[in-house]
Design a binder for these strands. Structure first.
Lengths: 189, 189
DNA sequence: AGCTTGAGGCTATCGACATTAGCCAGTCCA
DNA sequence: TGGACTGGCTAATGTCGATAGCCTCAAGCT
């Protein structure tokens, strides 16, 4: 029997791709194995458990998301950075709903956990979206949480098909981004 | 062997209570059966499947949530109604995280599905929170989605322990509610 | 009261999964 | 070339949702 030449990274990639395709809830070790042309138990030579696999997918997702936002906000500030960052995050979740769900399902296990670092990068990306708004330092934490709340809330609702009327979700998003932007700008005085 | 005297409603109640206690993800038919002093297969005389149970819990949760918000906004309008409704929703999710998660996991199966009616009641409760803000009719749908996004986003992040710093989540919530309230008021001109 | 009947328990069993144990061949390095 | 480790595999276990089929309790009729 020829070797498949798997590595933890390859298994993680397959898992991430499958999560996006079939939905995070349907992700199973058997499916990943099938995708890789291997029997289920073989995966355990590269990944210690399904939870471990999800954890790895979460790390990858957090890094990718952070990159997306960073790229989008590159060289911008204030309203422009915020708008671009928000669009980038929404697009990422839309294109990779399974990965994003995995990111929410995992939680970091300590300061050395790579997930901790990855989530820190995401947080930094969000913080970067607020650069240029002159926000009172005492309110920064709240503004950051507002950002998370809004972006996460919209993304998950949309991913769960939560907007029934589905007519103009696009419009709603830009309206929402504009709403938050105006609010953030009005904080400055 | 004495009869346990179960009904679909009793099974649903037990499931809802357990979901809140052990977390929606840990909810299992075996756990529900144990709680009711019965063997697992017996549950299937009252509920057709685990999905059916979740669906029933979702209906109950939606109705309870709608009631909570209705009670809180009773006789109020504008900022007061919004603030009270937002607090009520947050409290409900905090006290019944499992039920709320079940509500998000289920989706209505048609116009006759009781879940459709229950979700409609929730939607109406949210809409009532906006009464008193003079919002351009063309923007009402967006404002409603803003509300859902913010309340759902905050509730799920908090339930998932998403706010790491956890210092002053309370403060963040009132700040966020105030932020949205000011934005909504400023729409009127 | 006894009989009938159906609803609501139960045991046994199946199938899908995650996971572990233990075997065996491929590959790589001395 | 010959180990020895690595990464596949088969087999087996345990958990969980779900189904089949049995058996008894209890309500209602005669």
């Amino acid at each position: 029997m020829p070797r498949a030449g798997l590595t933890p990274a390859i298994v993680t990639d397959a898992g991430a791709a499958l999560a996006d395709e079939v939905g995070f809830a349907q992700l199973s070790m058997g499916l990943v194995a099938e995708r890789l042309g291997v029997k289920t138990p073989s995966l355990y030579k590269h990944v210690t458990s399904q939870a471990d696999l999800v954890h790895r997918i979460a790390v990858q997702a957090a890094n990718e998301l952070a990159d997306s936002i960073r790229d989008a906000t590159q060289g911008r500030a204030g309203s422009e950075a915020f708008t671009a960052g928000a669009q980038a995050m929404r697009r990422y979740v839309k294109e990779h709903p399974g990965r994003y769900a995995a990111g929410n399902a995992a939680s970091p296990a300590g300061p050395d956990d790579p997930l901790t670092a990855a989530l820190g990068r995401v947080l930094a990306s969000w913080a970067a979206m607020l650069h240029g708004y002159r926000i009172d330092p005492g309110q920064e934490i709240h503004a950051l949480r507002l950002l998370r709340t809004v972006l996460h809330g919209f993304a998950t609702l949309e991913a769960a098909n939560g907007f029934r009327i589905d007519a103009d979700v696009e419009d709603s998003f830009t309206w929402l981004v504009d709403f938050v932007d105006r609010g953030l700008r009005s904080l400055d005085r």
